[in-house]
Design a protein around this nucleic acid. Structure first.
Length: 966
RNA sequence: GCCCCCGUAGCCCAAUUGGCAGAGGCAACCGGCUUAAACCCGGUCCAGUGCGGGUUCAAACCCCGUCGGGGGCACCA
């Protein structure tokens, strides 16, 4: 059970949970009163606790946690893992002299808050505020060194104002692919007014012909609206009836369900807001090179962006039409034996009336005419849900369209099929099929009796099927060009050059990334700062009217439907307040009636820029002042920042690898293009912490979960467990997984504060293992961390009297050596964020001091300072009891005395054929040749050699010699 | 199906990146303290690194294969 907490007369000053709690809360109050963790900006009202601006000589260090979502359930012990880690790193950097910025705000819009509000019948604002208050309380008790002045919630009107302001910046911009960026490369966002100016001046041709002057005002606006980075378009979108809203591609799983709630998602053509993230696809992919992120997350982003280089190739279709295909293998064009277009492809809108000569029966699907066959297949494909399509992946279906096209490199006729393995949304929605070099095409060809022609020589012994590997080209020549004999990589540019010279194709890059669908049909989100006029065209609400606040509506719950009701339509809750929707504004031509946008923004919007707001959440005049942005985030803002700049350390779960992290990078780059930030990237170093998981237990008889806290392991049978249910022991089975109410295995920080105090909890979480690894929670093991702190306490304070027990004598050399090594090791481990091993080193030093009769101050004080980042309250208390005034938060982190790092002797291992046969003590600076002779003369070595000749001797002075016998 | 990460004492985890397999913690056991127990203090026990090959003077670490666990992608042309 938990440690004994009863006050005892003989040990009134023992470091118990009660004492820990008392001093922890006292120090938390003290930090607040003194403003200890008030981080100073270089200028402005945000100074340090003493009212000073930032020290110009200090390096900055900006550490940040992923935005917490204040759920109604409160925190369990898994949640604070990352917050503790960033706090430890931040406190360590502060002691190293850095100006550390660390704050925490709340991502408070979004579906869970809305659903929780619906459940409890309260307004989301009320539940959100209550949840934030509870989370603040739980986190404050943890002793996090956040700047309390820099917190905010995304729902605050002052924050919403700037979220909406950024939206309007994006709305009022277009992407000029030719504009030159500061680094010389091409393409950047520019104010839309500059596009209009170009049209007006005639320096940019009006698309679709005509002149600007000839267009009506409404035509001009439609033209310009099409170019905006935030734009409305009618297109197929992901409609999720179960959630009652449309979703971005990133929010839909591969099997066509909503990431949140796991409801089916249907394709519906709807008019919705989008963000032109695709304009940034190249930069989002390329700039990953500039930042220090886990390779896995970079791979996921690259994968999601899905850039592939190839060519578009035009095939003439007999009868006067043509079809353009995208291929990454233009080198295999001579092996293209048929074409496949997606069922939605416009080429199928007209098909021949009769099957052409040479049509095989396998191609027709049993229909008499192409018209019937194609219509039937298109209907079948349209009826398929994403889930069914997913289930059918690999099974090739399709039908001949009746069209014949001409292979541009050899003039041969190729049949055009339609099949749903070709997607309208990728490339051109049409492919050239090369069965010999593509596995999917091979499978289709096999199913439809289509021929193949090999154009890459497979290796000897290859026994059929598609060969997708490298090799020499064969069968690839016409009168003008020959690829034969070339390697695949050489052939690609050559054939593309030829195609381009003949006007048959163009070098092309395509992306999997789609534009970001940005509207949601929900109440609890940022309203769009947009109104519509009588032409139904969007108009920005003037800056002075921001923020647009959420109106009261009769019912703020989203209109949801049966999860499989594909025919239903979204209904924004904001539309339920007619008085709000209709608005009278004077936008320069007198008061007029407008209609408000009733969709809200996705909750990713608020998390796209919060790292900018921490720099000064009180700034009412700027999104972020350029001076602060460059000081904390700019390129080279500290020696580690690199050319991209950004937050120095960003810690959070890997689940945001493509959603939040991609969206935030996109917004940041838009803000960069528009001159609002100087950094190229928002987050320089990203670290994904692991998860704390927990055992859960189900009854062996009925499979019901039992309270994990009541379970014990059978002493007689390890691995078997029993739970105490109504006073009786029942056998249970162990499971492992998330911590959650339904699994009855939740342990909360509050439980830990009560039983051990916050410092013990912090030490335990940090010592469980490497930060990036997931691991099981084990409440019984927490006591080990408490013992460490208790020993540290006892090394300083007499438990009975509260008197200091340290002495001012000089420490023994042995103690100085342990001290020096501990300091050196702890610094290395802390800098590498290996907090578990850093704590182990602290324990070694502490245990050493425990073993002494008298603890010397000169050894104890550095230990207290080094313990401070991980267990700050007890460290502050001991520091004070040791006679220091004020907080240790800014005390320099100890530096090892190099004189005690060198050992007088080291143990040299003597091996014979790799096996340890002897050990000798030698000087650390011993000469290799001397050591060799010592080793060869060693009795243990001679015994192992047993008279054999020595072939060679490996000497790694001073630690190892390996003698290799002949 | 493809790709990535991880398998070390009963458990959580170290190992200066190829050089003595054990730093730290939990649990267990023994002893001290105690009227007794807990706390505390001291000590003990415990694996040859999932498995099979290979490279090397030397392999937990590198290579190949295989098994188990976790994650990502999945008809993207």
């Amino acid at each position: 059970m938990f440690s004994d907490d009863a006050p005892r007369d003989d040990v009134r000053f023992r470091y118990t949970a009660a004492l820990a709690s008392e001093l922890e809360q006292r120090w938390q109050d003290r930090w607040d009163e003194l403003g200890t963790f008030h981080t100073a900006n270089p200028s402005g009202a945000l100074t340090d606790g003493a009212g000073r601006p930032a020290d110009p000589d200090a390096a900055t260090f900006y550490v940040m946690d992923m935005f917490p979502y204040p759920s109604g359930a409160g925190l369990h012990v898994g949640h604070p893992l990352g917050y503790i880690a960033t706090d430890v790193v931040g406190r360590f950097r502060r002691m190293r002299g850095d100006n550390v910025l660390h704050a925490l705000g709340y991502d408070a819009f979004g579906l869970p808050a809305e659903q929780y509000a619906v459940q409890t019948g309260q307004h989301p604002q009320v539940t959100t505020e209550a949840n934030i208050a509870n989370m603040r309380r739980q986190l404050r008790r943890l002793g996090l060194a956040h700047d309390p002045r820099r917190t905010f919630a995304t729902t605050d009107a002052g924050y919403v104002r700037w979220t909406q302001w950024i939206f309007l910046q994006i709305f009022e911009s277009w992407y000029d692919v030719d504009a030159v960026r500061p680094d010389g490369s091409a393409g950047r966002a520019r104010p839309i007014a500059e596009l209009v100016a170009q049209y007006e001046a005639g320096t940019r041709p009006v698309p679709d012909g005509g002149t600007w002057a000839d267009l009506t005002d409404v035509e001009r606006r439609r033209l310009v609206d099409r170019e905006r980075l935030a734009y409305i378009t009618e297109a197929p979108v992901n409609w999720c009836p179960g959630l009652g809203t449309v979703l971005a591609n990133e929010e839909v799983t591969a099997d066509g369900r909503s990431e949140r709630g796991n409801f089916p998602v249907f394709q519906r053509s709807l008019s919705q807001w989008n963000m032109r993230i695709t304009a940034y696809a190249d930069r989002l992919a390329d700039d990953l090179e500039l930042i220090d992120w886990p390779a896995k997350v970079k791979a996921m982003q690259r994968n999601w962006i899905g850039r592939s280089d190839g060519a578009n190739v035009v095939f003439d279709v007999i009868g006067g039409l043509e079809v353009e295909v995208f291929t990454t293998r233009p080198d295999t064009l001579f092996g293209a034996t048929f074409l496949v277009v997606a069922p939605e492809h416009p080429l199928l809108d007209e098909v021949p009336a009769a099957w052409p000569d040479g049509t095989r029966s396998a191609w027709t699907g049993g229909f008499d005419t192409p018209i019937e066959a194609v219509a039937a297949y298109r209907a079948e494909a349209a009826a398929k849900t994403a889930v069914e399509r997913q289930a059918d992946a690999g099974r090739k279906t399709g039908v001949f369209s009746g069209h014949l096209a001409t292979n541009p490199v050899n003039g041969l006729p190729v049949p055009v099929f339609t099949a749903d393995y070709v997607l309208m949304g990728y490339g051109t929605g049409a492919i050239m099929a090369v069965p010999a070099e593509d596995e999917r095409d091979w499978a289709f060809a096999a199913a439809f009796e289509l021929p193949h022609v090999r154009t890459v020589q497979p290796p000897a012994g290859f026994d059929g099927g598609a060969w997708t590997g490298p090799g020499a080209m064969i069968n690839s020549a016409n009168d003008e060009i020959s690829l034969n004999g070339l390697q695949v990589a050489e052939s690609k540019p050559k054939i593309i050059d030829w195609l381009e010279s003949k006007g048959l194709g163009t070098r092309t890059t395509t992306y999997r990334l789609r534009d970001w669908l940005f509207s949601r049909q929900r109440y609890w989100g940022e309203p769009f700062p947009i109104v519509y006029d009588e032409n139904d065209l969007p108009i920005a609400i003037p800056d002075e009217l921001l923020p647009v606040e959420l109106p009261d509506v009769p019912d703020y719950s989203p209109r949801t439907y049966a999860a499989d009701d594909a025919g239903s339509s979204p209904e924004p809750p904001l539309g339920r307040n007619a008085d709000w929707v209709a608005i009278t504004l004077d936008l320069g031509d007198g008061p007029k009636q407008y209609r408000r946008e009733t969709n809200t923004m996705p909750n990713w919007a608020g998390s796209c820029w919060y790292y900018l707001r921490y720099l000064d959440p009180t700034d009412a005049d700027h999104l972020v002042s350029p001076e602060l942005e460059s000081y904390w985030l700019g390129p080279q803002h500290n020696p580690e920042a690199g050319t991209a700049g950004g937050v120095d350390l960003y810690v959070g779960g890997v689940e945001h690898a493509v959603l939040h992290l991609l969206y935030a990078r996109f917004w940041h780059k838009v803000l960069f293009d528009l001159g609002h930030v100087s950094s190229l990237e928002p987050f320089h170093k990203l670290f994904n912490q692991g998860y704390i998981q927990a055992f859960a237990y189900v009854r062996a008889d009925n499979g019901a979960y039992v309270e994990a806290a009541t379970v014990t392991e059978r002493p007689d049978a390890p691995g078997e467990f029993v739970a105490l249910v109504d006073g009786a022991e029942v056998p249970v089975l162990q499971e492992y997984g998330k911590m959650g109410k339904s699994l009855k295995n939740v342990v909360t920080p509050d439980d830990m504060y009560d039983a051990y105090g916050a410092d013990t909890f912090r030490v335990y979480e940090m010592s469980m293992g490497p930060l990036d690894q997931s691991r099981p929670w084990d409440t019984r093991a927490v006591v080990g961390s408490q013992r460490f702190l208790q020993r540290l306490w006892r090394n300083t304070v007499d438990e009975a009297t509260g008197e200091l027990v340290v002495v001012d004598d000089d420490p023994e050399p042995a103690t100085l050596r342990v001290l020096a090594h501990s300091i050196a090791d702890v610094r290395i481990e802390m800098e590498a964020m290996r907090l578990n091993t850093a704590i182990a080193k602290l324990i070694v030093l502490n245990n050493h001091l425990t073993s002494l009769d008298r603890v010397p101050r000169a050894a104890l004080e550095p230990l207290v300072l080094m313990t401070a980042p991980v267990a700050p309250h007890i460290a502050e208390e001991l520091w004070q009891r040791l006679g220091h005034a004020g907080s240790l938060a800014f005390e320099p982190f100890p530096v090892a005395d190099a004189a005690y790092l060198v050992e007088d002797t080291v143990t040299c291992v003597l091996q014979v054929q790799g096996k340890v046969r002897s050990r000798i003590e030698v000087s650390p600076s011993i000469d290799g040749d001397v050591l060799r002779e010592l080793a060869l003369a060693d009795a243990g070595v001679q015994r192992a050699l047993d008279g054999r000749e020595v072939r060679t001797v490996i000497v790694r002075a001073p630690k190892l010699v390996n003698v290799v016998p002949a």
